[in-house]
Every structure is written in structure tokens, then in C-alpha cells.
Design a protein around this nucleic acid. Structure first.
Lengths: 334, 334
DNA sequence: GTGAAAGCGCTAACAT
DNA sequence: ATGTTAGCGCTTTCAC
């Protein structure tokens, strides 16, 4: 049961192999009659081109590698959606690899992508192993690091300051007169850590005492996790006046837990989340949050990559701050 | 800036190319001294094997194709997680393609995957274009259709009866004495449609009148969508006694909307969702739901694929019903 | 345990 | 507009 090859199609159509190749890739360069003969031969044989052979011969993969830490988080789903919309339309295959929040796995992902000769790499995050960074630099292809701001980008860096955003969220609570402000997070990835740093900064600036609860928990299902963490906090500590949750899912879970215990929001406790997920605006009470621009980040990353590929040079080092926005809503008394 | 090839490594190490190839793939078959020389040459040159060449020469891709309708839904994230865990450990690359709930895009996805010579295809869903089905059959590789039960599987089918589950959810409400039972859904994909069929069936069996609200809306952000749909329903129709939401996100949104309007759950309206997402058990009130086994589905699909690849034959047609479970909780008065 | 030769299935470059 | 030739970078097969 040999697979059908381009040569088989050529024989059946009575043309040379290269003509078949042309019909498939640039049909306009082949005359109508030949094109028709080739197309019917393709159909008759059920020919499907071998992409590996094509990639080898043309030295182009038409593939772009994307590394995300997880698929469990809508943030990355929205980011990937934007990337896909643009890159697939431009004729590229998007190869998504999951690093599971591990720099070692990220390095392996990079090796796998380079092995596939992707034409660019887009990474969520700016922290890599030394070797990973070396691999990316040596590969001489466009690299976009996203979602955070880097002091020292490899090529292009598109993101926001997670620390400033964490500071802004905390300041939002401080401005409303709260002093006992808690910070709630599950596992701390780099981005959450930066938000925590921003929290510390704002608290210190205001002369307030820190009061964080960070736990090592599985990352997914964070509404449930938010309830659990909130319960833990309320059981073990003096009640805070306000809570800054490192993401909206945690915040929603915390709100549910408070409701269950008859703690009024924002009357007894104010809560602010992060990312401004779509349910935040329509929750009851509506949830204050920090809006992050992950869709725009993905879109811009894709556009920059396409531009760099067309320019066929590595882009100049560039850092783009897409910023964030404080969304003041009912859960913090607005 | 020519890329480093296996031949370059061979020259530097002073061995033949095939030895380099062996060191990389079956290090045990090469003597210690040569292996070391090769490995240092690899490191020195920063050699990264060209996978396209490897796939072409070996006629094996070590890749498995997976088609899902969206990445926006945790259901598929959990399903993919299971697939990844098993297939990546077994040395396969998992190529995920997104059909965006379109059979045409699914067909294109299948072509793309076959072009990459994937060694098996795992598809969420059982509905394909005629041509897509033909492509899969002719490709002579293991095919697993999942998440629904098919009358006529291509090879292996692992799933549950969405219709029975929809019927069971409705019966759960009927047994609690409700008569005005609403069905709430955004866009109807095949699985939601089957749940709706189950709803119709149960209502007819009980001699009750249908009362569904199905809308054409964007699919993501369904907590927000659930609030919106619930509001629409409460504004336009006589108030139902119970609502069956086609997924837990919609149900949570509906609960939020009811709360906002001072409608007590389950005192004024009972609500049941679908999928038993992790927040269902910890919502307040806790949300009744139908537990689907998507993780197990992914796991079993991966295992069946590995078995079929090792057996190097297409598997016999097989249909596995993984079932579902009714989770009775506070939102329906339990 | 190691190597030489041949070829996987395409496409680039150069004819015609 | 179509064909010829050569080769992409690996692995297979067979020999030593």
C-alpha cells in the first residue's frame, strides 16, 4: 500500500512532476488544460502532498512556533486566537507548545520548534534558561517575547509591566481608605510574582503592612481555588478590609466564599481581580479588575512576525508597552 | 549563514554521518569514545536536527493529529491535557488544530494533518463532511472519534450519549415536580443539539410543553452569555420554574442574573448545568450538573491510538460508552 | 560497532 | 508554459 506521490500524479496526468507541483502551488503559472488534467489526477488518486518533503526541498516550513505555559487559562486562549487569526490567514501553520510553566520544558519546546525549522518564535514570557536564550539568538529568526516587559529583549518584546499593574490595583484599594489589604494567589508564576512585587511596593509606599496569602496549588480551576483560598484566609487570619486577587477567577471564587459566609461585598470586604475577564463586568456585584490586553498582544506579535519574515532580517530590538487599565466597579465600592 | 547539518557534525567529529545519526537516536549502539566526540561536536556547532529531513527519510512523523472545535472551552483543555500527557510521554508530537465548529475547516484540518503524515487522528466529534470521512478512511491510519457516540464509527469511537445526558438532566428537574422547564443555550453545536433533543424527549415523555431559548451568539465568555440569555428570557417570557443550561458557564451566569434580580435559587428557580466544571461544586448555591468524562475520554483515546500504532494495523471498529453522571446539588433543591 | 550507497518526495534553478 | 537536473538533510539497507 505505497502512498501516492507527486510522481504518480504526474504519470497519470501525463505531465512532468514539476508541473504537478506548480498546479498545487501556483496554479496560474500552468495552462488551463494541463491544470485540469493534473487536478483530476490528484482527485482520482486521492493525492495528499507530503509536507515534510516540501519543507526539505524548499527550505521553508511556513510554520511559526508559539510557546505558552498552559491552555487551561482563557488568557492564553484569547492570545492564541489573535495569533491564529492573523498567521493562518497569512498561510502559516501555528505550532503551539505548552511549557507547563517550566523553563526546562520551555527549552525543550524551543529545541523542538527549531528542529521543525519554524520561521519565527513567539513566547509568552521573558524568562528563559541561558541555553534557551542562546538557542534563540543563534537561530537567527524573529523572536517575540510577550505579556511582560523585558529589560533585555531578544528581539521584539510586547507586553505590559505586571509590577505597575499590581501596584495600580493595590493603590486603587489604598485610595479607597483600606489598610488591611490582602494579596491572594495560587502558585506564583513570573507574572503573578511581579504583581506581588507591585503590591509590596504600593503597600510600602503607603506605609502599610503586607498581608499576603500565596499557596502552592494546582493552577487550573481557579474559581474553586479562589473559594478555597478565601476560606483559608478567613479561617486563619484577621479579616482583611480588601483583597487583591491575582486573577479574576480567584476573585470570583473569593466572592462566592464571602457570600456563603454572609460577608457583604463591598460592604465588609472589597475585592479586585486581574485581567478583566468577560464575566467581571456582569458579575453581581460587578468585579473591579485590571484589564490586560492579551488579544492586542497576540495580534501585534503576529503582525511583527510577518513583517520580520517579509523583511527576511531579524528585527531590531524593540520594546512595546501595551499598558493596562484599572476597571473600578462595584466590588470595590465604585 | 548556512545551517549546521548532520554532515558538518560528522566532519568535525571525524566520523561518518550515519554515526552521528545513531548517536542522536540510539546512543547505545555507538561506542563510548565516538559517542563523546559526536556529542561535543553537536554542542560546539549548536546542531539542531532537521525534523523534516528525518521524517522524509524514515517515513515516520512521530506526530499525532488532534482536531478540536475551540480552545476557548475548558472541556477541550482538559481533554487535550490527557492526550498530551500520554502521547508526549510516548515520544509523539501532538499537533492540535482548531476547526472553529466548522465541518469545512475540519476537512481542511484533516488534509493538513494527513499532509504532515500524522500517524493517527483524534477528532472531537462524529460529524464530518463526506469527503473528510473518505480522506480518513483512505489514509489507512487509526482514527478516534470522541465525546459523542456514533452509529457508524470510522474506527474507534469513545464518548457518551449527549442525548441521554440531556434527557437525564431534564428528568432530574421533572422528578422534582417542575413543569415549566426552560432550555438555555448559545449557538448549538452538535453536542448541544443532542442535549436539546434529549430535553425534547424527556418533556414529551412527561407530557410537558417545550420552552427553550436558543440563540446565535459568540461562543466564548459564556458566564457573561449566561447572564445575558437569562436576562433575555426573564424579560420576554413567563418565569420558568427550572432551567437546564447547556453548560455550567451559562448556568453560573444565569444564577448571577437571577441573584441580581432577587430571584432565589432554588426557591424561585432551579438550575442545572452541564459538564460539572470544578466551580460547580463550590458555587453558592452549589450547582447541579451532568458530569462528563472528558479527561478519561482523552486518556483512553491516546491509549487506543498508541496500541493501534504498535499493532501497525487499523484497529477494529469499536464503540466505547464512557457514560455520565447526574450531580444533584443545591441549585435544584438537593 | 561503523561506514558507503541509495533514496525518501518534493522544489529551485536553469533550460527550452 | 513546460521540462530536466540536481539536491534538500536525513535514514535505510547492506556491507564490512
Amino acid at each position: 500500500m505505497r502512498r501516492v506521490t507527486l510522481d504518480d500524479v504526474a504519470s497519470l496526468a501525463g505531465v512532468s512532476p514539476i508541473t504537478v507541483s506548480r498546479v498545487l502551488r501556483k496554479p496560474d503559472s500552468v495552462s488551463e488544460p494541463l491544470r485540469q488534467r493534473v487536478n483530476s489526477a490528484v482527485k482520482e488518486l486521492g493525492y495528499v502532498p507530503n509536507i515534510a518533503a516540501s519543507r526539505l526541498a524548499s527550505a521553508r516550513s511556513h510554520a511559526i512556533g508559539v510557546i505558552v505555559p498552559t491552555l487551561y487559562n482563557v488568557i492564553f486562549a484569547e492570545y492564541l486566537l489573535a495569533l491564529h487569526e492573523i498567521l493562518v490567514d497569512a498561510g502559516f501553520q501555528v505550532i503551539v507548545v505548552n511549557s507547563r510553566y517550566s523553563e526546562i520544558e520551555e527549552e525543550n519546546a524551543i529545541k523542538a520548534l527549531l528542529g521543525q525549522r519554524v520561521e519565527a518564535v513567539i513566547i509568552a514570557g521573558i524568562h528563559h534558561t541561558t541555553h534557551a536564550r542562546q538557542l534563540l539568538t543563534r537561530a537567527h529568526l524573529p523572536v517575540v517575547e510577550t505579556l511582560e516587559l523585558s529589560q533585555d529583549p531578544i528581539d521584539i518584546n510586547i507586553g505590559m509591566s505586571q509590577e505597575s499593574a499590581g501596584r495600580a490595583a493595590t493603590q486603587h484599594l489604598i485610595q479607597r481608605g483600606f489598610k488591611r489589604i490582602a494579596f491572594l494567589s495560587g502558585n506564583l508564576d513570573h507574572r503573578s510574582q511581579s504583581r506581588l512585587d507591585g503590591y509590596y511596593l504600593a503597600m510600602r509606599e503607603a506605609g502599610l503592612e503586607d498581608f499576603e496569602l500565596v499557596t502552592q496549588r494546582p493552577r487550573h480551576s481557579s474559581i474553586a481555588l479562589g473559594s478555597a483560598l478565601c476560606a483559608e484566609m478567613l479561617n486563619c487570619m484577621k479579616m482583611p478590609e480588601a483583597i487583591f486577587c491575582t486573577d479574576d477567577n480567584l476573585a470570583l471564587g473569593a466572592m462566592q466564599e464571602c457570600r456563603k459566609r454572609g460577608i457583604g461585598i463591598p460592604y465588609n470586604i472589597s475585592i479586585i481581580g486581574f485581567h478583566d475577564l468577560e464575566f467581571a463586568a456582569c458579575a453581581s456585584p460587578s468585579l473591579s479588575s485590571i484589564a490586560s490586553r492579551r488579544y492586542e498582544t497576540g495580534k501585534l506579535a503576529a503582525e511583527k512576525v510577518l513583517a520580520a519574515i517579509h523583511a527576511s532580517t531579524r528585527p531590531a530590538v524593540e520594546r512595546i508597552d501595551l499598558g493596562f487599565e484599572v476597571k473600578a466597579r462595584e466590588s470595590t465600592g465604585d
